[in-house]
Design a protein around this nucleic acid. Sequence first.
DNA 1: ACGATGATGAAC
DNA 2: TTCATCATCGTA
Length: 173
Amino acid sequence: MGRVLPLSFFNRSALTVARSLLGKYLVRRRNGAVAAAVITEVEAYVGPQDKACHAHRGRTARNAVMFGPAGHWYVYFVYGMHWMLNIVTGPQDYPAAVLIRGVGHWNGPGKLTKALGIDGCLNGKMTHRKSGLWIEDPGCLVPQNAMQRTPRIGVAYAEDWALKPYRFVLRKV
DNA sequence: ACGATGATGAAC
DNA sequence: TTCATCATCGTA
């Protein structure tokens, strides 16, 4: 297996972290079994000024984790049935995160959390082996031409922020 | 195109 | 305490 990404990896801008996460391995351990899948699709939610970011209207009980240190999981429930998996980025007190939308052959943020057994229990936990969910660097490079940027999905309400190209997709080269 | 399904946040 | 909304998905 690869190197476990340290917290410093996440203490950068959400856009930089998002880009850098493509091609890394999301690793899940539960009941002693370990599963790993390549991260293929992510979105950056860049801060309080971002109208699509949950922190845009300030701190609440739900988004509190985004205001904490980088490298912690922000997991929330939406549409009455799906868990969304995010990783907090940037400095303490600056609310930003990256949504992990696709890994391996599971495309869609709700499907991947269901497949890997991820729910609110992981909210606020750190990304390291002990939490049962972490990210590893396999060491191979992702060619630039395999990365695609598009607007984010499902944020049409965000006005001028809806069209910003903050979604990164890894496509087969 | 639409309904499932329930937490969230803002208004009252 | 209501009520519209929601970083989605399966079925049609």
